[in-house]
Simulated scan of single mutants.
Amino acid sequence: MIYDYSVKNQEGEEISLERYKGNVLLIVNTATGCGFTPQYQELQELYEKYHLQGFEILDFPCNQFHNQAPGTDSDIHEFCTRKYHVTFPQFSKIEVNGEHESPLYTYLKNSKKGLLSNNIKWNFTKFLVDRDGQVIKRFAPNINPSQIEEDIVKLL
């Protein structure tokens, strides 16, 4: 279950995902220099619209795809808050594929496999998790956050 995992926040502190129990979650691997980076705007809009109903977005910067998330966790946070006014939780940079991938992402990928491969193929892959901690759907990077709003609302 998703609540069995802990992740590091931007300050490097371990945070149990148990903290988000009972909420609908959208977990996203992100990058600040990617063609999909403008999705931050729609993510923030969804967060503002549904946060008080129990919706959380968990943002995991990832630099595995052509070095598109350079800089420190602090640099990434500053960019996102300045340019996109992001207020949802942002975590420490992680790897989503390979030998050093986050155990959370191993779990997510095994819960909902991709079409051609289990690996994350690019930044802004999204996983939707219900209030019970079950991974419900996986969305490709080219699916804009606004396109999954209906799926989010069904779980709220």
Rank of each mutant, 00 (worst) to 15 (best):
T106M: 11
V135I: 03
S92Q: 04
H77G: 14
Y107H: 11
P89W: 04
P89H: 12
K121T: 15
L108V: 08
T87A: 09
H100L: 13
T106K: 14
K137W: 04
E99N: 13
S117G: 01
L115K: 15
T81V: 14
T125N: 11
N118Q: 15
S74H: 12
S74I: 08
L116C: 14
N110A: 13
F79Q: 11
H85T: 13
L128T: 08
N110L: 12
L108K: 11
E99I: 12
K137P: 10
P89Q: 14
Q90W: 06
V129K: 09
T125R: 06
T106P: 07
G133E: 01
I136N: 04
I76F: 02
L104T: 02
N119I: 07
I120Y: 02
N118M: 14
N119V: 06
G114M: 06
V96A: 00
T106R: 15
K126E: 15
K112F: 02
D130R: 09
S111V: 12
V96Q: 01
R138I: 10
E101S: 12
F124L: 09
K93L: 04
V135Y: 01
Y84M: 02
T81F: 01
T72E: 08
K83P: 11
G71N: 05
K121L: 09
D130K: 10
K121G: 05
I76V: 14
K93N: 08
N123C: 00
E78F: 13
K93G: 03
E95I: 05
W122F: 00
E101F: 00
S92D: 04
K113G: 12
T125D: 08
R138G: 10
K121A: 04
F91L: 03
S74Y: 06
D75S: 07
Y84P: 07
